[in-house]
């Protein structure tokens, strides 16, 4: 064991090796591949009307978030947060359904946070493992967790926030 990467005794005091640049790269890649440039372009008429008839841009009014735990040498949470409208559109696109059920929404946002979380996990000290995603209505409440970094994406006109928190 070297002195530079020896884990500290107290949980959460090990510096997480997740920078804003890393998180931005991960988030951009996830949304670009799974929800944009992957196979087919999103239908033009849908993209147009949806963005125009959707007046809310503040996810706080009707938000959805999904959180996944990273457990092991480093412990914390990875969180994806967006408006319900955005989450429903993501679900429609990924699941190719017209009517989105609560289960569809859980599954879609949960899988997005799962993929982001898996990539974040590869940046923190091993060994570590991922929990299962938990998707809930409303804003994410950090509780005692300490912010590590967060990034904002614009997905088809909808703000999406991706953040990493260390357990304190």
């Amino acid at each position: 064991m070297t002195t530079t990467d020896a884990p500290a005794d107290a949980l959460g005091s090990t510096p997480a090796a997740v920078s804003v640049e890393d998180l931005q790269q991960i988030a951009d890649d996830v949304w670009a591949t799974f929800l944009d440039a992957g196979d087919v372009p999103p239908p033009g008429d849908d993209a147009g009307t949806d963005a125009e008839t959707d007046p809310e841009t503040d996810p706080g009014t009707d938000a959805v978030h999904s959180a996944i735990a990273v457990l092991g040498s480093w412990e914390g949470q990875v969180v994806v947060e967006c408006s319900r409208t955005a989450a429903e559109r993501m679900a429609r696109q990924m699941l190719m359904v017209t009517d989105v059920t609560p289960a569809d929404l859980d599954d879609t946002v949960g899988e997005l946070v799962n993929v982001v979380g898996g990539n974040v996990k590869s940046l923190v000290p091993a060994p570590s493992s991922l929990g299962l995603p938990v998707t809930e209505a409303g804003r994410w409440v950090a509780g005692g967790a300490a912010p590590v970094c967060s990034v904002h994406l614009d997905w088809a006109g909808h703000p999406v926030t991706v953040s990493v928190w260390s357990a304190a």
Partner: peptide
């Protein structure tokens, strides 16, 4: 086809008998 992306995880999967390994996210 997984979000597990550490080198040692790929090694484990290949040793278990997987033929290929694609890390999420991925393109078409």
């Amino acid at each position: 086809v997984t979000t597990e992306s550490e080198n040692h995880q790929v090694v484990r999967a290949l040793a278990a008998g997987a033929h290929e390994y694609l890390i999420k996210p991925f393109t078409a």
